[in-house]
């Protein structure tokens, strides 16, 4: 089904490489968006599209942090807590989000809207504290800005806008 639905996009990806296997990461991103996560069935489907042994594809999904083989919310909120962010407000931001979303980092809110994660450096250290929402950057997210940000994201979901947990349509 995935191939039928995204034939043009997948074919375009395949055309870039002399080896089908190279298309694995991009095709997994498509599958992840299409199915909301990479469960076993979708991983096997991708393997079949690319003629790869199942195990090889599971291996790749397991290795990279941007492939989610567990349930995630509509938005994955990644807060950088690395040096230097952790000394520039990241801890406060995580604490604030945990309190507001009523989940610990690493978990998904009950309404399946947000998954909160601590992540390592995302190359925006001068803008700390910083987070990515579905891989879109939000800079200088001091706790006072959090309510508006969350509201914004919720509204986006309600408005039916295109949501990509893989960041395929990321704007900034």
């Amino acid at each position: 089904m995935l191939y039928e639905k995204y034939r043009d996009e997948i074919d375009a990806i395949l055309a870039r490489y002399p080896s089908k296997r190279s298309a694995l990461l991009p095709v997994l991103y498509i599958a992840q968006d299409a199915y909301g996560r990479l469960d076993d069935a979708s991983i096997r489907e991708v393997a079949e599209i690319l003629d790869l042994p199942y195990t090889d594809v599971f291996e790749v999904v397991g290795f990279y942090t941007l492939f989610y083989n567990e349930d995630v919310g509509k938005f994955v909120l990644d807060v950088c807590d690395d040096v230097p962010c952790c000394f520039c407000g990241a801890e406060e931001l995580v604490a604030d989000l945990e309190q507001r979303l009523k989940v610990k980092a690493g978990y998904t809110t009950d309404d399946k809207m947000f998954t909160l994660r601590r992540v390592k450096c995302i190359a925006a250290c001068d803008q700390a504290p910083v987070l990515q929402a579905n891989l879109e950057f939000h800079y200088k997210v001091t706790p006072d800005k959090v309510p508006a940000l969350l509201e914004d994201l919720r509204r986006k979901v309600e408005s039916g806008a295109q949501i990509s947990i893989s960041g395929r349509f990321a704007e900034h």
Binding site: R16, Y17, S19, R21, S22, A23, L24, L25, P26, L28, Y29, L50, L52, D56, E59, V60, G62, F63, Y64, T65, L66, F67, K120
Partner: peptide, 26 residues
């Protein structure tokens, strides 16, 4: 062509990068 990684610092190491670009673990 642009090829997006998927979250792994080690893929900055050039040979891990090549593995990743070949669709393998980095």
């Amino acid at each position: 062509y642009v090829h997006r990684g998927a979250g792994a610092y080690i893929c900055g190491e050039e040979t891990a990068l090549l593995e990743s670009l070949e669709g393998k673990i980095g």
